[in-house]
Simulated scan of single mutants.
Amino acid sequence: MKLFRTGLNTGLLALMLAWPAAFAQDGVQVGQMSPLRKIVPAGTGALEQQAAAQYVQTLNQAKQQGALAADNDPQLLRLRAIAKRIIPFALPWNARAKDWKWEVNLLGSKQVNAYCMPGGKIAFYTGILTTLRMTDDEIAMVMGHEIAHALREHGAERAGTATIANIFVRGAEIFAAAKGYDPNMAGQIAGGAAKVTMLKFSRDDETEADIVGLDIAARAGYDPRAGIVLWQKMGMVNKNAPPQWLSTHPSGGSRIEEIRRHLPEVMPLYAKAKSAQLSALPPYQPNVKGISPVTYP
Protein backbone atom coordinates (compact mmCIF):
# COMPACT_ATOMS: atom_id res chain seq x y z
CA MET A 1 0.00 0.00 0.00
CA LYS A 2 2.88 2.40 0.75
CA LEU A 3 4.31 1.98 -2.75
CA PHE A 4 0.89 2.64 -4.24
CA ARG A 5 0.39 5.81 -2.19
CA THR A 6 3.88 7.12 -2.99
CA GLY A 7 3.53 6.61 -6.71
CA LEU A 8 0.03 8.03 -6.73
CA ASN A 9 0.82 11.22 -4.86
CA THR A 10 3.80 12.13 -7.05
CA GLY A 11 2.90 15.16 -9.10
CA LEU A 12 -0.79 15.26 -8.11
CA LEU A 13 -0.63 18.78 -6.75
CA ALA A 14 1.16 20.06 -9.85
CA LEU A 15 -1.47 18.46 -12.06
CA MET A 16 -4.22 20.00 -9.98
CA LEU A 17 -2.76 23.50 -10.24
CA ALA A 18 -2.19 23.24 -13.98
CA TRP A 19 -5.80 23.63 -15.10
CA PRO A 20 -8.22 24.83 -12.41
CA ALA A 21 -9.60 27.68 -14.57
CA ALA A 22 -10.44 25.39 -17.49
CA PHE A 23 -11.99 22.88 -15.13
CA ALA A 24 -14.62 25.39 -14.04
CA GLN A 25 -15.73 26.07 -17.62
CA ASP A 26 -16.35 22.60 -19.01
CA GLY A 27 -17.80 19.31 -17.83
CA VAL A 28 -20.69 18.95 -15.41
CA GLN A 29 -21.97 21.67 -13.09
CA VAL A 30 -23.50 20.62 -9.75
CA GLY A 31 -23.30 23.76 -7.62
CA GLN A 32 -21.93 24.21 -4.13
CA MET A 33 -21.67 21.45 -1.55
CA SER A 34 -24.50 21.18 0.96
CA PRO A 35 -24.19 23.46 4.03
CA LEU A 36 -25.56 20.54 6.09
CA ARG A 37 -22.06 19.04 6.13
CA LYS A 38 -20.94 21.89 8.44
CA ILE A 39 -23.41 20.95 11.17
CA VAL A 40 -21.33 18.02 12.41
CA PRO A 41 -19.76 19.30 15.68
CA ALA A 42 -16.43 17.51 15.24
CA GLY A 43 -15.98 18.70 11.65
CA THR A 44 -15.00 17.01 8.40
CA GLY A 45 -11.43 16.35 9.52
CA ALA A 46 -12.67 14.26 12.45
CA LEU A 47 -14.88 12.23 10.11
CA GLU A 48 -11.87 11.54 7.90
CA GLN A 49 -9.89 10.33 10.93
CA GLN A 50 -12.75 8.09 12.01
CA ALA A 51 -13.02 6.73 8.48
CA ALA A 52 -9.29 5.99 8.37
CA ALA A 53 -9.49 4.08 11.64
CA GLN A 54 -12.51 2.12 10.47
CA TYR A 55 -10.78 1.35 7.18
CA VAL A 56 -7.74 -0.06 8.98
CA GLN A 57 -10.03 -2.18 11.15
CA THR A 58 -11.81 -3.51 8.06
CA LEU A 59 -8.52 -4.39 6.38
CA ASN A 60 -7.22 -6.13 9.51
CA GLN A 61 -10.39 -8.20 9.81
CA ALA A 62 -10.22 -9.13 6.13
CA LYS A 63 -6.57 -10.11 6.50
CA GLN A 64 -7.35 -12.35 9.47
CA GLN A 65 -10.04 -14.04 7.39
CA GLY A 66 -7.74 -14.44 4.39
CA ALA A 67 -9.98 -12.10 2.40
CA LEU A 68 -7.57 -9.21 1.81
CA ALA A 69 -6.00 -9.26 -1.65
CA ALA A 70 -2.21 -9.27 -1.73
CA ASP A 71 -0.43 -6.32 -3.31
CA ASN A 72 0.46 -8.45 -6.35
CA ASP A 73 -3.11 -9.67 -6.92
CA PRO A 74 -3.96 -9.03 -10.61
CA GLN A 75 -7.40 -7.63 -9.85
CA LEU A 76 -6.02 -5.31 -7.18
CA LEU A 77 -3.28 -4.12 -9.54
CA ARG A 78 -6.01 -3.41 -12.06
CA LEU A 79 -8.01 -1.36 -9.56
CA ARG A 80 -4.97 0.63 -8.47
CA ALA A 81 -3.99 1.37 -12.05
CA ILE A 82 -7.48 2.76 -12.73
CA ALA A 83 -7.36 4.80 -9.52
CA LYS A 84 -3.97 6.23 -10.46
CA ARG A 85 -5.51 7.60 -13.65
CA ILE A 86 -8.70 8.90 -12.04
CA ILE A 87 -7.53 10.53 -8.81
CA PRO A 88 -5.60 13.46 -10.34
CA PHE A 89 -8.83 14.60 -11.98
CA ALA A 90 -10.70 14.30 -8.69
CA LEU A 91 -8.54 16.81 -6.82
CA PRO A 92 -10.07 20.05 -8.19
CA TRP A 93 -13.45 19.04 -6.76
CA ASN A 94 -12.26 19.39 -3.15
CA ALA A 95 -9.29 21.38 -1.85
CA ARG A 96 -8.76 18.85 0.95
CA ALA A 97 -8.29 15.95 -1.46
CA LYS A 98 -4.69 16.83 -2.31
CA ASP A 99 -3.75 15.98 1.28
CA TRP A 100 -5.67 12.72 1.52
CA LYS A 101 -3.72 9.49 1.96
CA TRP A 102 -5.41 7.66 -0.89
CA GLU A 103 -5.64 3.86 -0.68
CA VAL A 104 -7.25 1.17 -2.80
CA ASN A 105 -7.82 -2.37 -1.57
CA LEU A 106 -9.74 -5.45 -2.66
CA LEU A 107 -11.79 -7.58 -0.26
CA GLY A 108 -12.84 -11.13 -0.99
CA SER A 109 -16.64 -11.21 -0.69
CA LYS A 110 -19.69 -12.03 -2.80
CA GLN A 111 -21.08 -8.56 -2.07
CA VAL A 112 -21.79 -6.47 -5.18
CA ASN A 113 -20.36 -3.36 -3.58
CA ALA A 114 -17.59 -0.78 -3.42
CA TYR A 115 -17.03 2.40 -1.44
CA CYS A 116 -14.74 5.36 -0.83
CA MET A 117 -14.63 6.63 2.74
CA PRO A 118 -13.97 10.27 3.64
CA GLY A 119 -10.26 10.87 3.15
CA GLY A 120 -9.88 8.71 0.04
CA LYS A 121 -10.05 5.18 1.49
CA ILE A 122 -11.32 3.00 -1.37
CA ALA A 123 -12.41 -0.64 -1.21
CA PHE A 124 -13.89 -2.94 -3.83
CA TYR A 125 -15.41 -6.36 -3.20
CA THR A 126 -14.57 -9.21 -5.53
CA GLY A 127 -18.31 -9.83 -5.93
CA ILE A 128 -18.89 -6.64 -7.89
CA LEU A 129 -16.05 -7.45 -10.28
CA THR A 130 -17.07 -11.02 -10.96
CA THR A 131 -20.87 -10.80 -10.79
CA LEU A 132 -21.02 -7.86 -13.22
CA ARG A 133 -18.04 -8.97 -15.32
CA MET A 134 -16.80 -5.41 -15.14
CA THR A 135 -14.67 -3.81 -17.82
CA ASP A 136 -12.11 -1.17 -16.90
CA ASP A 137 -14.51 1.55 -18.06
CA GLU A 138 -17.27 0.17 -15.82
CA ILE A 139 -14.91 -0.06 -12.86
CA ALA A 140 -13.99 3.57 -13.51
CA MET A 141 -17.66 4.55 -13.40
CA VAL A 142 -18.10 2.89 -10.00
CA MET A 143 -14.81 4.23 -8.67
CA GLY A 144 -15.57 7.74 -9.89
CA HIS A 145 -18.99 7.57 -8.26
CA GLU A 146 -17.62 6.41 -4.91
CA ILE A 147 -14.80 8.96 -4.95
CA ALA A 148 -17.37 11.66 -5.70
CA HIS A 149 -19.20 10.82 -2.46
CA ALA A 150 -16.00 11.58 -0.55
CA LEU A 151 -15.18 14.68 -2.58
CA ARG A 152 -18.65 16.16 -2.07
CA GLU A 153 -18.50 15.27 1.66
CA HIS A 154 -21.77 13.38 1.58
CA GLY A 155 -20.86 11.56 4.78
CA ALA A 156 -20.72 14.84 6.70
CA GLU A 157 -23.90 15.97 4.97
CA ARG A 158 -25.77 12.84 6.07
CA ALA A 159 -24.49 13.28 9.62
CA GLY A 160 -25.78 16.85 9.58
CA THR A 161 -29.13 15.72 8.22
CA ALA A 162 -29.41 13.10 10.96
CA THR A 163 -28.66 15.74 13.60
CA ILE A 164 -31.46 17.97 12.31
CA ALA A 165 -33.84 15.00 12.09
CA ASN A 166 -33.16 14.07 15.72
CA ILE A 167 -33.81 17.64 16.83
CA PHE A 168 -37.06 17.66 14.82
CA VAL A 169 -38.27 14.40 16.40
CA ARG A 170 -37.38 15.55 19.92
CA GLY A 171 -39.12 18.87 19.32
CA ALA A 172 -42.28 17.10 18.15
CA GLU A 173 -42.31 14.97 21.29
CA ILE A 174 -41.90 18.01 23.58
CA PHE A 175 -44.63 19.95 21.73
CA ALA A 176 -47.04 17.01 21.88
CA ALA A 177 -46.46 16.53 25.61
CA ALA A 178 -47.10 20.23 26.22
CA LYS A 179 -50.41 20.01 24.36
CA GLY A 180 -51.50 16.87 26.20
CA TYR A 181 -50.93 14.43 23.32
CA ASP A 182 -48.99 11.17 23.36
CA PRO A 183 -45.33 12.18 22.83
CA ASN A 184 -44.37 8.70 21.68
CA MET A 185 -46.96 8.77 18.92
CA ALA A 186 -45.87 12.25 17.87
CA GLY A 187 -42.25 11.10 17.85
CA GLN A 188 -43.09 8.14 15.63
CA ILE A 189 -44.93 10.34 13.14
CA ALA A 190 -42.16 12.93 13.11
CA GLY A 191 -39.56 10.18 12.84
CA GLY A 192 -41.32 8.70 9.83
CA ALA A 193 -41.39 12.08 8.10
CA ALA A 194 -37.72 12.65 8.90
CA LYS A 195 -36.80 9.24 7.55
CA VAL A 196 -38.49 9.88 4.20
CA THR A 197 -36.72 13.24 4.00
CA MET A 198 -33.36 11.62 4.69
CA LEU A 199 -34.01 9.03 2.00
CA LYS A 200 -34.55 11.86 -0.46
CA PHE A 201 -31.32 13.51 0.60
CA SER A 202 -29.55 10.19 0.05
CA ARG A 203 -31.01 9.77 -3.44
CA ASP A 204 -29.92 13.31 -4.32
CA ASP A 205 -26.40 12.47 -3.12
CA GLU A 206 -26.36 9.35 -5.28
CA THR A 207 -27.39 11.32 -8.36
CA GLU A 208 -24.76 13.96 -7.67
CA ALA A 209 -22.10 11.27 -7.22
CA ASP A 210 -23.12 9.69 -10.53
CA ILE A 211 -22.73 13.02 -12.33
CA VAL A 212 -19.43 14.04 -10.72
CA GLY A 213 -18.09 10.51 -11.18
CA LEU A 214 -18.87 10.65 -14.90
CA ASP A 215 -16.88 13.86 -15.21
CA ILE A 216 -13.87 12.51 -13.32
CA ALA A 217 -13.75 9.21 -15.19
CA ALA A 218 -14.24 10.85 -18.60
CA ARG A 219 -11.32 13.22 -18.00
CA ALA A 220 -9.19 10.19 -17.15
CA GLY A 221 -10.05 8.58 -20.50
CA TYR A 222 -12.82 6.18 -19.49
CA ASP A 223 -15.97 5.95 -21.59
CA PRO A 224 -18.97 7.55 -19.78
CA ARG A 225 -21.34 5.35 -21.79
CA ALA A 226 -20.07 2.45 -19.69
CA GLY A 227 -22.27 3.84 -16.91
CA ILE A 228 -25.36 2.97 -18.93
CA VAL A 229 -24.23 -0.61 -19.41
CA LEU A 230 -23.20 -0.83 -15.76
CA TRP A 231 -26.74 -0.01 -14.58
CA GLN A 232 -28.25 -2.35 -17.11
CA LYS A 233 -26.10 -5.09 -15.62
CA MET A 234 -27.11 -4.01 -12.11
CA GLY A 235 -30.74 -4.34 -13.15
CA MET A 236 -30.14 -7.95 -14.10
CA VAL A 237 -28.89 -8.82 -10.59
CA ASN A 238 -31.21 -6.52 -8.58
CA LYS A 239 -34.60 -7.48 -9.94
CA ASN A 240 -36.17 -7.37 -6.46
CA ALA A 241 -34.94 -3.89 -5.53
CA PRO A 242 -37.34 -1.71 -3.45
CA PRO A 243 -39.36 1.08 -5.11
CA GLN A 244 -37.32 4.20 -5.80
CA TRP A 245 -39.23 6.37 -3.31
CA LEU A 246 -38.41 3.92 -0.49
CA SER A 247 -34.76 3.52 -1.41
CA THR A 248 -31.62 5.43 -0.58
CA HIS A 249 -30.60 4.91 -4.21
CA PRO A 250 -32.35 6.04 -7.40
CA SER A 251 -33.73 3.30 -9.60
CA GLY A 252 -31.46 1.94 -12.31
CA GLY A 253 -33.72 3.42 -14.97
CA SER A 254 -33.49 6.86 -13.37
CA ARG A 255 -29.72 6.62 -13.22
CA ILE A 256 -29.46 5.61 -16.86
CA GLU A 257 -31.70 8.52 -17.84
CA GLU A 258 -29.53 10.92 -15.82
CA ILE A 259 -26.33 9.58 -17.41
CA ARG A 260 -27.77 10.02 -20.90
CA ARG A 261 -28.79 13.58 -20.02
CA HIS A 262 -25.20 14.44 -19.09
CA LEU A 263 -23.44 12.70 -21.99
CA PRO A 264 -23.24 15.97 -23.97
CA GLU A 265 -21.18 17.42 -21.11
CA VAL A 266 -18.82 14.49 -20.54
CA MET A 267 -18.37 12.85 -23.95
CA PRO A 268 -16.24 15.79 -25.20
CA LEU A 269 -14.01 15.32 -22.14
CA TYR A 270 -13.62 11.64 -23.00
CA ALA A 271 -12.87 12.40 -26.64
CA LYS A 272 -10.25 14.94 -25.58
CA ALA A 273 -8.64 12.44 -23.22
CA LYS A 274 -8.48 9.90 -26.06
CA SER A 275 -7.19 12.54 -28.51
CA ALA A 276 -10.07 11.64 -30.82
CA GLN A 277 -12.82 13.43 -32.69
CA LEU A 278 -16.14 13.10 -30.88
CA SER A 279 -17.88 11.98 -34.07
CA ALA A 280 -15.26 9.29 -34.64
CA LEU A 281 -15.68 7.50 -31.31
CA PRO A 282 -16.90 3.93 -31.80
CA PRO A 283 -19.93 2.64 -29.82
CA TYR A 284 -19.30 1.29 -26.33
CA GLN A 285 -19.38 -2.50 -26.60
CA PRO A 286 -20.92 -4.47 -23.69
CA ASN A 287 -19.28 -7.77 -22.78
CA VAL A 288 -22.50 -9.62 -21.93
CA LYS A 289 -25.41 -10.85 -24.02
CA GLY A 290 -28.71 -9.02 -23.96
CA ILE A 291 -27.26 -5.49 -23.81
CA SER A 292 -26.88 -3.47 -26.97
CA PRO A 293 -23.86 -1.30 -27.84
CA VAL A 294 -24.22 2.29 -26.68
CA THR A 295 -23.74 5.01 -29.29
CA TYR A 296 -23.39 8.77 -29.07
CA PRO A 297 -25.19 10.94 -29.97
Score class of each variant (00 low, 15 high):
95 A>E: 14
190 A>I: 12
251 S>P: 06
113 N>L: 01
173 E>M: 13
275 S>K: 15
109 S>E: 05
289 K>Y: 07
221 G>T: 08
145 H>N: 04
224 P>A: 01
64 Q>K: 15
268 P>S: 05
220 A>C: 12
73 D>Y: 09
296 Y>M: 07
176 A>Q: 00
28 V>S: 04
99 D>H: 14
233 K>A: 11
33 M>R: 15
116 C>P: 05
39 I>Y: 07
154 H>M: 12
272 K>I: 09
243 P>T: 05
149 H>I: 06
75 Q>T: 10
213 G>I: 10
10 T>I: 11
93 W>H: 11
213 G>S: 13
120 G>Q: 01
230 L>R: 03
31 G>T: 04
195 K>H: 15
165 A>T: 03
245 W>F: 14
251 S>C: 05
156 A>E: 01
196 V>S: 05
277 Q>N: 13
10 T>R: 14
288 V>H: 15
15 L>V: 10
225 R>K: 10
164 I>W: 02
234 M>W: 12
175 F>A: 09
88 P>T: 10
172 A>S: 12
22 A>P: 00
110 K>M: 09
127 G>W: 05
137 D>Y: 07
77 L>P: 11
183 P>K: 12
97 A>P: 00
107 L>F: 13
139 I>L: 07
39 I>V: 11
167 I>K: 13
73 D>R: 05
227 G>I: 05
210 D>L: 12
144 G>L: 14
194 A>F: 02
268 P>D: 04
49 Q>A: 09
256 I>E: 01
198 M>H: 09
286 P>Y: 01
147 I>V: 13
160 G>E: 01
233 K>T: 04
1 M>G: 15
287 N>Q: 13
110 K>P: 15
290 G>V: 09
25 Q>E: 09
174 I>E: 11
203 R>T: 08
119 G>L: 01
24 A>F: 03
174 I>V: 13
228 I>E: 06
217 A>T: 13
2 K>D: 14
96 R>M: 11
256 I>M: 08
32 Q>D: 06
279 S>L: 08
122 I>P: 00
174 I>D: 10
121 K>T: 07
226 A>V: 00
293 P>Y: 04
267 M>T: 07
288 V>M: 14
259 I>L: 02
216 I>Q: 09
138 E>Q: 11
290 G>Y: 10
99 D>Y: 15
246 L>R: 04
187 G>T: 03
10 T>L: 12
273 A>N: 02
241 A>F: 06
33 M>E: 02
22 A>V: 14
245 W>G: 05
243 P>K: 08
164 I>M: 15
143 M>L: 12
181 Y>G: 01
284 Y>Q: 11
